[in-house]
Design a protein around this nucleic acid. Structure first.
Ligand SMILES: [Zn+2]
Ligand SMILES: [Zn+2]
Ligand SMILES: [Zn+2]
Ligand SMILES: [Zn+2]
Lengths: 129, 129
DNA sequence: ACTGATTTTGAGAATCATTCTCATTCTCAG
DNA sequence: CTGAGAATGAGAATGATTCTCAAAATCAGT
């Protein structure tokens, strides 16, 4: 369960994530690697993706369809606003929400409260009403 | 794809959800039905669960493990605070968050913004620090 | 570089939740 | 009662993720 060292495969995977500016699926990463000539295996992609998530270098959200989608990100706490049309996503940080979540947890006698928040919508690069 | 009518199977499923006071998996529901003697099939459980979700009579959240968990709920907009130890969960409504989410969407030029929020922690029925 | 120990890799098999298929059973209006 | 259409359930199919394990790469010590 130790994090795999830095290897060419890991670098290739990080490169793919950096190139994409939205979330992409493990299978997507694998396909893109294959397209670029790297013979990286699917298992390896999953391994590194999991390690990167653990290190906080990559975010993962489980899409409604049930698959996990990955995206490289800054290390500190934040959430994502993602376009449902083009997949583009921006990191957002909203103190009001952070505070409200903490307060609600306390009010109900819960401790060690965590939260997951996902925002989605249609960005301004698409036909408007 | 039309919503199935009201049938004994549907009633049984709703009963199971009502009995449990936390989220449970489709497979859980199926198993519990079997245990109670109903010969309900897995496909039927999934069908009704999906219909109930569509009607807003049931909430669904995809757990970190990737499976969908269901819970009967009131119809109006709300979120859940769930205990990671016993699975108990309470509905919460936090205007501050609703407002903040809408505002952030607008600030970034997104329209038709939706959000999913899940709170989890340990409830006061468990050993404290 | 050579050797042996350790880690990483990748092809394919194994899992497992969910969805599909389809013949059978139900429901209900006429 | 009868026939059309809806619902059911057993089992197959799907598809993402995880596991298995032999081969390949890497490392430390010589
Ligand atoms: Zn967009
Ligand atoms: Zn937060
Ligand atoms: Zn609890
Ligand atoms: Zn809300």
């Amino acid at each position: 369960m130790a994090a795999p060292r830095d290897t060419p495969q890991r670098r290739a995977i990080e490169a793919v994530l950096a190139a994409a500016d939205g979330f992409c699926t493990a299978q997507d990463v694998h396909a893109r690697l294959r397209a670029e000539g790297h013979g990286t295996g699917l298992a390896t992609v999953y391994r590194h993706l999991a390690a990167l998530v653990e290190q906080g270098r990559v975010d993962v959200v489980t899409s409604p369809g049930g698959e996990a989608r990955y995206r490289s990100c800054s290390g500190s706490h934040h959430h994502h606003l993602t376009c449902t049309e083009c997949g583009r996503s921006v990191e957002v940080r909203i103190d009001a929400i952070e505070r409200a979540c903490a307060r609600v947890g306390a009010e109900h006698g819960f401790r060690d409260v965590h939260h997951t928040i996902e925002l989605s919508g249609v960005c301004d690069a698409h036909p408007a009403p």
